[in-house]
Amino acid sequence: MSKIIEDEKSARVRNRRIHMANERTFLAWIRTSIGIMAFGFVVEKFALFIKQMALILGKSNIEKALPPSHGYSAIVGIFLVGLGTLMGLLALIRYKKIERQIDEDTYQPSSILDILLALSVLAVGIFLVMYLIHST
């Protein structure tokens, strides 16, 4: 009888550990999405900073120092904030789905969020490389 109780207790502890690992993964995705949103905000506001500095310093001095701007930083910034928001939502959906699968003992790994992040970073990286090549 005590063997059954010990096995039950061991299974509950193991299940708690799995749930905590799932929660840590969720929080890591949330930190990543917040980081992407913050980076997007900085990229968007940096363009505003450059425009304000151009007005303060006088356009003749700043035009020689900086390449012409096409306003892409606002687009990239908004895209990154949107991407971070979408990743946060997908992380929550993934967390709840895995939580349910752990409780039902039917866990099936899924890598949609991983693929989305990798493709998004690749797309932003390609865009930034093209932007830097074009601006030089």
Rank of each mutant, 00 (worst) to 15 (best):
V42P: 03
M37L: 03
S135H: 11
R31F: 12
D114T: 05
L92M: 15
I62M: 14
I93G: 05
I115M: 01
V76S: 04
H134M: 09
G35L: 03
N15E: 13
L66M: 15
Y95R: 13
A74L: 10
L128A: 07
V13K: 12
T85P: 06
G40E: 03
E63K: 12
V76Y: 01
G82S: 14
L132F: 10
A123C: 11
A11H: 06
V124D: 04
S33I: 05
A118Q: 03
R31H: 03
V124I: 14
I4G: 02
I30M: 15
I102V: 15
I115L: 02
S120Q: 10
L55P: 05
Q108C: 07
V76Q: 01
I78F: 12
L86G: 01
L27C: 04
F127V: 04
D103P: 00
V81A: 08
Q52S: 13
R14F: 10
L55R: 10
I78Q: 09
L66N: 10
A21K: 12
V121I: 14
L122M: 07
R24Y: 10
L128M: 11
R31D: 03
I93R: 13
K96I: 12
S10C: 04
I78D: 01
R16H: 07
D114V: 02
Y107K: 11
A47C: 01
A38W: 10
R16G: 06
L48Y: 03
V121Q: 01
T136M: 13
A38G: 13
I5S: 08
N22P: 06
L66Y: 15
L57G: 08
K59S: 00
L66V: 15
E99T: 15
R24E: 07
K9P: 04
V43W: 06
K45W: 08
G77F: 07
I78K: 09
Y131N: 11
F26H: 15
D103L: 02
L27Q: 10
I62L: 15
L89P: 00
L89Y: 15
N61C: 00
G58Y: 08
M53R: 11
G82A: 15
L89N: 06
K96G: 00
T25V: 06
M20V: 02
I56T: 10
K64E: 08
L80T: 01
M20N: 05
M1S: 14
W29F: 13
A38V: 14
N22W: 06
T32Y: 09
L113E: 09
S110G: 13
H134C: 04
L83S: 10
A47H: 12
A91Y: 12
I133S: 12
F41T: 06
I5A: 12
G71N: 06
I34K: 09
A47Q: 13
R94L: 13
K45T: 09
L55S: 12
R16F: 09
T32F: 07
V76E: 02
I50E: 02
L117M: 10
Q52E: 14
Y72W: 06
G84Q: 01
L66D: 05
F39W: 04
G58N: 07
I30S: 08
A118T: 07
L55A: 10
K3S: 05
T32S: 00
I56R: 08
E23T: 11
P68C: 03
G71P: 02
A118L: 13
R94P: 00
S60G: 05
R12Q: 13
E8N: 14
I98T: 13
I133F: 15
